[in-house]
């Protein structure tokens, strides 16, 4: 985040860090015990799913604490229109964890908005571990920034005709104070407070650079993808859970072994 400020534990408990080969690559947000919402382009290149993992309950990526949980990924669902009508269109993905996220004051889900939420006059914030300067400096601490929403027509004027915006996209940025999302913030949530509850209205998606104030951050509009999100979360079953299991033959073998060892000890 450019122009972001340090945040504190428990303030954004839905924030997820998605790692690839041990390095932070994208943000995400917790929707429920098994599902994380992020940007599809985080998984765009052909990569082995086993090389990804996720952290929740963490603010400093170098210091896992007692509230931090680590998860392997069971599957990733990419939106069917990803890159279909726009180079970064349909930039939404659902990530299913292999095991259940345990909720606490440090780890909580974010709410999804209603499809007809009025976006005017909302106080919206974004968070992320992305670059903190256009030179590519990265920080290990989670940053936060309040980003005003920018009307679509104004955003399209700023980007010009070469970078067209789809209806499923929305723009946010603080032009005056040079606050913007940057590389590594992708997938992180844009959240707004409505009636004392935080709703996720956007997913960090793309932009032209980070430090050019005339080019705000562009977000996938969560409201646009609500049906797809809900359908997948409701129809895809939870991943199978590994439970301790000992076959009857193995149990007999173990039992015999224990008996023999017990006899030897007596002798």
């Amino acid at each position: 985040l450019l122009g972001g400020e340090l945040t504190i534990d428990r303030k954004w408990p839905w924030q997820v860090s998605i790692h690839y080969a041990g390095f932070h690559v994208c943000g995400g947000s917790i929707l429920n015990a098994y599902w994380v919402l992020t940007a599809a382009h985080c998984f765009a290149r052909e990569k082995r799913l086993q090389t990804f993992d996720m952290y929740v309950g963490i603010t400093n990526l170098e210091v896992a604490n007692k509230h931090t949980q680590w998860f392997e990924i069971n599957q990733v669902i990419i939106h069917p229109t990803f890159e279909m009508f726009h180079p970064v269109g349909g930039d939404v993905a659902l990530v299913q964890s292999k095991s259940a996220i345990v909720f606490s004051d440090y780890v909580l889900p974010i709410c999804l908005p209603s499809s007809n939420l009025n976006l005017s006059d909302l106080s919206c914030w974004t968070t992320g571990w992305g670059m903190v300067s256009p030179q590519g400096e990265t920080g290990k601490d989670l940053l936060e920034a309040q980003l005003p929403l920018i009307p679509k027509f104004q955003c399209q004027l700023l980007y010009g005709l070469t970078s067209y915006l789809l209806p499923e996209m929305l723009c946010a940025g603080d032009i005056k104070n040079m606050k913007n999302v940057c590389e590594g913030d992708s997938g992180s949530p844009l959240v707004c407070k409505v009636n004392q509850t935080w709703l996720q209205i956007g997913i960090v998606s793309w932009g032209r650079g980070c430090a050019q104030p005339l080019y705000p951050g562009v977000f996938a509009n969560v409201s646009y993808f609500l049906n797809w999100i809900r359908y997948n979360m409701e129809t895809i079953p939870d991943p199978p859970q590994l439970t301790p299991f000992v076959s009857s033959s193995l149990r007999a073998t173990v039992s015999s072994f224990v008996t023999i060892m017990g006899s030897l000890l007596v002798l």
């Binding site: 428990r10 303030k11 839905w14 429920n32 909720f103 909580l108 709410c111 709703l199």
Partner: peptide, 27 residues
Amino acid sequence: VSHRHPKSQPNSLSSDVACGQPALHGK
């Protein structure tokens, strides 16, 4: 684990906690 979140949020996709309600509120 927090026990203070009732299952009453209409927008929540979670079965056991309320969404969008951090325990800590920023100033």
